[in-house]
Computed example of a mutant assay.
Amino acid sequence: MTPRQQQAWAARTEHDRRDARTRALLLAAAGRVFARHGYGPATIAGITTEAGLSRAAFYVYFASKAEVFRVLAVQVRDAFLAAQEVPGTDPDDPYAVARASTGAFIAAYAEHLPLLALFEQQALCDHEVRELWTEIESRPLRRHARYVRRLVKDGRADPVVEPLALARAVGAMSTTWARLVAADPDVYEDAVRDVTTMHLHLLRVTPRDGSEPPDGSEAPPAPRAPRPDAPRSRPG
């Protein structure tokens, strides 16, 4: 590669990085504006003012308010799917997986709570948002149910109800406790401990060494976004 080609490549890379930062600023600002005002009253002008950018900058990345809203819905969907990918957790340890995935789900739900009601409402009139909302609701449940079926097949669990029903019950408990965490972040560890304990009781996991199963008393730390290259385990 010639020096001139190297300079052109470096300039393009730096431009791409600026693009990524600007787009991220607009998305973060849009999330705050939608959460604060709702979908209808939110405006592109309000989003750009919140981001400290020009209206022209907005249209470089998004064609409309509806488009940026859909992109936010995609981000939230991906956050809930990522909540079931627990990096650094032994996939053969159902206790660790239950604690880590419960903690990640509660954290994700509490973080995105202001937008979730808007997504559900907008899904009534926007088929693209409706498809995303359906994924937010159903894909984590299906993945969790598959994980439980695998535990049953391996002789590791004897759930008190069929796997999809168990996934729905744990999901409902997690969302209920996540609302408490959204109102008071200090209860996060207690919420994760309580939901994990109930989750393990519903699973009736069989310890491989014959020991008593843990009660979920130690909640994991509030999860961080996983690195793209991090090894991941998931309940499904």
Rank of each mutant, 00 (worst) to 15 (best):
T2C: 03
Q5V: 14
A8Q: 14
R12C: 00
T13Y: 06
T13H: 09
R23T: 06
R23A: 09
A24T: 15
L26C: 00
L26A: 04
G31Y: 01
V33F: 13
Y39L: 14
P41S: 13
P41K: 15
A42V: 12
A42R: 01
A45T: 10
G46D: 13
G46N: 11
E50I: 12
A56I: 08
F58M: 09
A63T: 15
S64H: 09
A73T: 13
A83R: 04
E85C: 14
P87C: 12
P91Y: 03
V97S: 02
A98M: 02
A98V: 06
R99V: 03
S101K: 06
A104H: 00
I106A: 01
A107H: 10
A108Q: 04
E111I: 11
H112A: 06
L116I: 10
L118M: 12
E120T: 13
Q122S: 10
C125P: 06
C125Q: 13
H127V: 13
R143I: 07
R143E: 02
R149A: 13
R150N: 12
V152T: 14
K153G: 12
A157V: 07
V161Q: 10
E162L: 08
L166E: 05
A167N: 04
R168N: 08
V170N: 05
A172Y: 01
A172K: 02
S174Y: 06
A178K: 03
D184G: 11
V187D: 01
E189T: 08
A191G: 03
A191D: 01
V192Q: 04
T196Y: 05
T197R: 09
L200A: 05
D209V: 04
G210K: 02
G210F: 07
E212R: 04
P220H: 06
P221M: 10
P221Y: 12
A222K: 14
A225H: 13
P226F: 02
R232C: 07
R234T: 14
G236L: 04
